[in-house]
Amino acid sequence: MKWEKILVRYGELSTKGRNRKQFISHLRNNIRFSFVDLPNIKIQAERDRMFLTSSDDSEIDALIERLPKIFGIQSFSPVASCSKDLEDIQATALQIMDSLDNHEKTFRVTVKRSDKFFPLDTYELQSLVASNVLRKYSTLKVQMKKPEIDLRIEVLNDAVYMMAQVIPGAGGMPLGSNGRSLLMLSGGIDSPVAGYMLLKRGVRLDAIHFHSPPFTSERSKEKVMDLANQLSHFGATVRLHVIPFTDIQQSIQAQIPENVSMTTTRRLMMKIADLVREEIGALGIVTGESLGQVASQTLESLTAINAVTSTPIFRPLISMDKLDIIDIAREIGTYETSILPYEDCCTIFTPSCPKTKPKLEKVEYYESFKDFDELITEAVQNREVLSFPMKKSNDFLNLL
Rank of each mutant, 00 (worst) to 15 (best):
S251F: 00
S177I: 05
E65T: 13
K2Y: 13
L13C: 05
S261A: 12
I243R: 09
A194M: 06
Q230Y: 00
A254E: 09
E378M: 10
F369Q: 09
E331T: 11
F71V: 09
E361P: 01
I272R: 00
D101R: 03
I252H: 05
L227N: 03
V133D: 03
I89N: 10
I328E: 12
L100R: 09
A295T: 06
D150Y: 01
A194L: 05
E46G: 13
I318Y: 07
D56I: 13
I70A: 07
R47I: 06
L52K: 09
S310M: 04
S55E: 13
L7T: 03
F314W: 13
Q44K: 15
R20C: 04
T264N: 00
H211F: 15
G195H: 05
R204T: 11
V294A: 09
F35N: 02
M163I: 00
L375Q: 12
T216G: 11
P168T: 08
S54C: 06
I339V: 15
K136R: 15
I376G: 04
R219A: 15
D371N: 15
V363C: 05
H241S: 07
R20N: 06
S212L: 06
P312M: 10
E367G: 04
Y123E: 05
P192K: 08
Q253H: 01
G172D: 07
G169D: 12
S114C: 01
E218R: 09
M1Q: 10
P257R: 08
N30I: 08
M97C: 14
D61E: 15
T246P: 04
M225L: 02
I64M: 12
S191N: 09
Q381S: 14
D37P: 05
L86H: 08
M97G: 01
N30Y: 03
R47F: 14
P192D: 08
L52G: 10
T110A: 13
N157G: 04
T53P: 00
R135F: 00
F107D: 05
G188Q: 07
M197F: 13
W3T: 14
F215T: 10
N40T: 12
L227S: 03
L375G: 13
M184H: 04
S261W: 01
S387H: 01
E331N: 12
E384C: 05
A282W: 02
N398M: 07
L63H: 06
D56T: 11
V224Y: 05
R135N: 15
R20L: 11
D274I: 01
T53K: 12
K116N: 07
S25L: 10
E278C: 03
A207W: 04
Y137E: 01
L185H: 03
L128Q: 15
I325V: 14
N19P: 01
S220H: 02
L399T: 13
S368W: 01
K105T: 07
I326L: 03
H233R: 12
P174W: 00
E104Q: 14
Y365V: 01
D371P: 01
R32A: 13
I332Y: 08
I339C: 08
T350L: 10
K355W: 00
Q293F: 02
P351H: 05
T377Y: 06
I189T: 08
A45P: 10
L317E: 02
E378K: 15
A228D: 07
R266W: 00
